[in-house]
Amino acid sequence: MKYQRLPLVFYGFFQGMGEVGLLFSRTVKNIFKKPWEKDIFLQQVEEIGVRSLPVVSMTAAFGGLVFGLQTYIGFHRYVGAGTEAYGGPIISLGLSKEIIPILVGLMVSGRVGSAIAAEIGTMKITEQIDALFSLGADPNKYLVVPRVLAAFIVLPCLTLYGDVIGMIGGFFYNVVVMGVNRFIYIKNTLLYLELWDITTGLIKAAVFGIVIAIIGCWQGLKAEGGAAGVGRATTRAVVIANIMILILNFFLSKALPASLGG
């Protein structure tokens, strides 16, 4: 009996994928069409970027601290006392390639993806989207394009900022709190950390930005059924974007080369 619903689940999944795919392709086409909604784009840069700085600062700082702590314990326990300073490159690599892009993605998804779905969903149920159409504005161009473009540009910037804060956190725990050798820690970090490691994280962040914005817009545009419908759209936007971020992170880690050096 319980397997009877299975085709419906698959149908819903593929229908959703199709809707997101169409929305995305339409958005990409509209990016190059005039008029450009410059003011809304700048508003979204502020909303997604500037206003996310406090939450990104907190998560990156504590992410860096706890990763520094576990790396210190790992080296101390399995390699031996005195080797903890060699953890610097591992901390920086782990943070810039995996932890910071994911943390930033999840945090921005919770803060911004939900807000996008709620704002557009409310516009949908109060006929503001229909009003945009009637007044000669394409809702995709007016609402979706600025948000997707802003998230695509801003997420890598937030991630780079988070990388710096996280690495300072790891350095602070190891060097200031646990007293490991500062010179070895910095020298090894600079020796082994490649620019590509940081770039990998930034590429992932750009993809996560598109995912967060497009799923938020998709759910907002699909919202129906009053306030409860907007609530459901908001929840779905965050849950779907978070799952997509974690799945895509694995495939991007697998697809992107580990190093550009021979």
């Binding site: 516009m123 109060t126 006929e127 503001q128 229909d130 009003a131 159409f133 009637s134 000669g136």
Partner: peptide
Amino acid sequence: RRKFGMLFQSAALFD
């Protein structure tokens, strides 16, 4: 669409 203006039931002002 330029020929039409529409007054929506809820006014639908951009809030």
